[in-house]
Design a protein around this nucleic acid. Structure first.
Length: 107
DNA sequence: GGACTGACACTGG
DNA sequence: ACCAGTGCCAGTC
């Protein structure tokens, strides 16, 4: 974990702290890292996600509640299925209801 | 050291 | 609320 890429490891750690049934935005994770402007780097770190299963990247969505592309876990449907199984609700638009499932650190 | 890339966020219209 | 443009950061070539 604590490899040369400390930044990445931090991302994986924070993402792994996201409880089931909740979703966090890249900006939120970046803010926890201390770099609210590093939202892009966070997404990239998840792309490099060397530990799928250990890092629930499927719980990480963008500010709009949209899931990642179709290359994440084998398709958006795969990601959506995982979230639905955890109790996450989806809007008719296919987006996550951040109003109900937005992860609140400390809350 | 410089340039390009990438699963984003913010601001303005 | 949405779309388009801009800025940020770390990693790789």
């Amino acid at each position: 974990m604590e490899s040369s890429k400390g930044y990445f490891s931090k991302v994986y750690r924070i993402v792994s702290t996201i409880p089931p049934g909740k979703v966090a935005t890249y900006g939120q994770i970046a803010a926890l890292l201390g770099d609210a402007r590093g939202a892009r780097t966070v997404g990239w770190a998840l792309h490099c996600n060397p530990f799928p299963g250990l890092v629930p990247c499927h719980r990480v969505v963008n500010q709009r509640g949209e899931l990642s592309g179709g290359f994440a876990f084998g398709g958006q449907e795969r990601q959506r299925s995982l979230l639905e199984r955890e109790g996450v609700s989806f809007l008719p638009d296919g987006r996550v209801d951040l109003k109900r499932h937005l992860w609140r650190p400390g809350g």
